[in-house]
Amino acid sequence: MRGPMLEANYVSKTFGLDGALAARVQALSEVSLTVAQGEFVSLIGPSGCGKSTLLKIFGGLTPAEQGEVYVRGDRVTGPHPHIGMVFQEDSTFPWRTTLGNVEFGLEMRGMARRERRDRSKATIDLVGLTGFEHRYPAELSGGMRQRVAIARALILEPQALLMDEPFGALDEQTRIILGEQLLRIQGKLGQTILFVTHNINEAVQLSDRVVVMTARPGQIKATFNITLPKPRDSRIIASEAFGRLVAQIWTALREESLKGFVQATGAQVE
């Protein structure tokens, strides 16, 4: 049995605690989650259910109000050296080339130029961007920029990768192809991945386990083990088993999505 890489015990988080009572929003309520080493877990839930907040708590970017979070058994009190993060928004540095972006972390850790160049080129190759080393982000497509961000996180060899809707801003086809590449990279490097998404197909395509969260305050509603064979590629989408899993997850998610919709818009839905 593989030990836990990420562990959250009864984590709660409320925003606006220093403001008026009416402005307080409870994002998470007593969430407990364990992710084993090398596992790919997707968090899915309605907008505003606290998925990204949970990811930021794991990443040490925001503190939990209650409960405890561990990375490889170390209690999280700030960013952990074994954690890498990829964000939904474009996070590449526009003033650096692909190479400059990818080698950034190594440069900050003081690695010699030649060594970090070699490692950067290998990582750029891993994400399929060879030939674009000297391009600036403005000269790359959205999908390529996300691959630069993934390479920048991977080069530091994190044991766990936290990905906050990394393909959320991309078109469906690019999303499927990048998902396939991500699986290939994970198969090669064996990282633990906690992946936030809104897309059920994406969650099923990529994950070993899909965790469905409730509408705000976020709690874990159901967990689905994805038993589809591995290694997987995007052709799995066409299989009957894939369709069944998507339907099961949507059944669990539908009620929460409706609640989330009402919370966000105030509109009633039949």
Partner: peptide, 19 residues
């Protein structure tokens, strides 16, 4: 998001400012 990238990388204050 760029600031968060720096925080995840555990940059020092000086690195965060200058880089």
């Amino acid at each position: 998001t760029l600031i968060d990238v720096g925080r995840v990388l555990n940059l020092t204050r000086r690195q965060m400012f200058f880089h």
